[in-house]
């Protein structure tokens, strides 16, 4: 084990180039799929990507357990994770921005409220259109639908996710006190809650498509609803998988009271996903 003050520069890195090839294959495959091609290329890309992640993270975990990393490297990792999460916040920001814009600007303009050409817009192009959120626009794209109520599944999901935030924090306290077994237990609970959330979300989508006639193509409401909740759901999946991996590492006696960066990174990510959900719950479902 090297001294904690040393700085570790890995010799050579083979995984990044694998990752680039994976992403290239994936993106090219996805694009061809959208253009009416087959899905094979995309699947190959995804497979290489998974292979790369298993390999790369495996190496990092091994190094971490060897004690290769100094305190300085640890700080670098932390900063990287923090700013990565910030970049994710901005990504969601784009979609929240779209929601905000549609609700406060384009919706009212289409129904003639606002200065400039708004009244002409309504009178000449969309006469008779009255804007109330949620809306699928003056042409009622996607046909008549029912909006998703915040009571029911979304409320249950909120409870699930908030609880999972608590269990996650308990797990964190546990490992801080070196209680690995407790950490694993509460992480398990967190993961279960997370996957339950995803399950209910899928149920909700099924509801929306089959009973409410609420689809991605249901105008701007459907667009913002599905893209916001969809990207969020995807992040919950990722977060839950990461937590699951952390949990398995816990069962393998990884982590100690002082060395558990991977856990913390996963927990930050989980809390971020949590907070985004609160935003969604308020702005997409309730208001």
């Amino acid at each position: 084990m090297s001294s904690p003050s040393s700085y570790y520069i890995p010799h050579e890195a083979k995984w990044p180039i694998v990752g680039s090839i994976a992403l290239f294959t994936f993106f090219a495959g996805f694009a061809s799929l959208l253009n009416g091609g087959s899905w094979y290329l995309m699947a190959i890309g995804a497979a290489i990507l998974v292979y790369m992640m298993v390999g790369w993270f495996g190496e990092v975990i091994a190094e971490s357990e060897n004690g290769t990393y100094s305190a300085q490297v640890d700080v670098s990792f932390r900063m990287a994770m923090m700013w990565f999460i910030f970049s994710e916040v901005m990504f969601f920001g784009a979609f929240f921005g779209a929601l905000f814009y549609a609700r406060t600007f384009s919706g009212p303009w289409l129904s003639g409220i606002g200065e400039g050409g708004a009244s002409a817009t309504n009178a000449v192009l969309w006469s008779g259109f009255d804007y109330v959120w949620p809306t699928n626009g003056p042409q009622k794209l996607g046909g008549s639908y029912e909006p998703m109520s915040w009571l029911g599944l979304p409320l249950i999901n909120t409870a699930l996710l908030l609880t999972s935030g608590v269990t996650c924090t308990i797990a964190h306290h546990a490992i801080k006190h070196g209680d690995r077994a407790k950490m694993v237990k509460f992480l398990l609970a967190t993961c279960v809650l997370g996957f339950l959330f995803v399950g209910l979300q899928i149920l909700e989508y099924w509801e929306a498509y089959s009973h409410l006639n609420l689809k991605m193509s249901t105008g701007i409401y459907g667009s913002t609803f599905f893209l916001l909740t969809g990207f969020h759901g995807f992040h919950v999946c990722m977060g839950a998988i990461i937590l699951l991996i952390v949990m398995f590492r816990g069962t393998r006696k990884h982590f100690s009271a002082t060395n558990h960066f991977a856990f913390e990174a996963a927990a930050w990510y989980w809390h971020f996903v949590d907070v985004v959900w609160l935003g969604l719950f308020i702005f997409v479902y309730i208001l």
Binding site: A102, L110, Y131, Q139, L141, K215, S223, T224
Partner: peptide, 12 residues
Amino acid sequence: GTSFFNAAGGGD
């Protein structure tokens, strides 16, 4: 099929 940038669906 989303309509972020399509006025007919309430986008812009």
